[in-house]
Amino acid sequence: MNKIEDILSATADTLAERGYHETNLESIAERLDLTKATLYHYFSSKDDLVTASLAWVGIQVNEQMAQVNLDPEAPAADQLRFLIRTQLKVVVRERRQAARLFLYPLDWPEPHRGHVKQLRQEHDQIFRSVIERGLATGQFAVDDEATALHCLHGAMNYVPVWFRAKRAKDYERMYETMSGSLLRLFTPAQ
């Protein structure tokens, strides 16, 4: 990572741990072993830094998720399973702070609230497009699409709270178990 990415990552970690109001430039600078003046060299204010950090995390996650959705010919169930597995990898291993930053509600001031909402909607649309295709083709059946989608996101984003791996294979087992269990939210009853 370069210095700006280090700053954005440390900011995201601090925001996820402390929330917006308890995060300050001193705590971010201390985390990076930098001076506050160094942060001001790159960002003019806390709000500029927070905006950049949210965009950095949100765009990275959304781009990673959108890549999963490339093959419109793949069965919707396979795509949804892979989306779930990818989301779990993101929130458990790669970008743990992402789940916390984009949960609702957080204590974001109004200018940030809209940005977070937009990033969440983009993320949601990636899942929604696969689910809608599965519903249209009869691969999926749900009583209420919005409720099933909320349950899906809630379950995936709660995994970092309870999951603790002891070995590398524990991750793979959890990805498989969770994706299979969550996929059942959308599969027709037999």
Rank of each mutant, 00 (worst) to 15 (best):
F43V: 03
S45D: 10
S45V: 08
K46C: 09
K46Y: 10
D47K: 06
D47P: 00
D48E: 13
A52V: 07
A55P: 00
W56R: 07
V57D: 01
V57P: 01
G58N: 03
I59M: 11
Q60P: 10
V61D: 07
E63K: 14
Q64Y: 08
Q64P: 02
M65P: 01
M65F: 07
M65K: 07
A66H: 05
A66R: 09
A66E: 08
V68I: 15
V68G: 03
N69T: 15
D71T: 12
P72Y: 09
E73R: 13
A74G: 02
P75S: 10
A76N: 08
A77V: 10
A77N: 12
A77P: 03
A77D: 14
D78E: 08
Q79S: 10
L80E: 00
L80R: 00
F82D: 07
I84M: 00
R85Y: 03
R85V: 07
R85P: 00
T86W: 05
Q87R: 15
L88S: 02
L88M: 09
V90W: 00
V92A: 11
V92E: 06
V92N: 11
V92F: 04
E94D: 14
E94Y: 06
R95C: 01
R95F: 05
R95L: 07
R96Y: 01
R96G: 08
Q97Y: 11
A99I: 01
A99D: 03
R100N: 04
L101W: 01
L101P: 03
L103N: 03
Y104Q: 14
P105F: 08
L106H: 07
L106V: 08
L106F: 02
L106T: 11
D107M: 04
E110S: 09
E110G: 03
P111I: 12
G114Q: 14
H115E: 14
V116I: 14
K117V: 06
Q118T: 13
L119F: 10
R120G: 05
R120Q: 10
H123S: 15
Q125L: 10
I126V: 15
F127V: 05
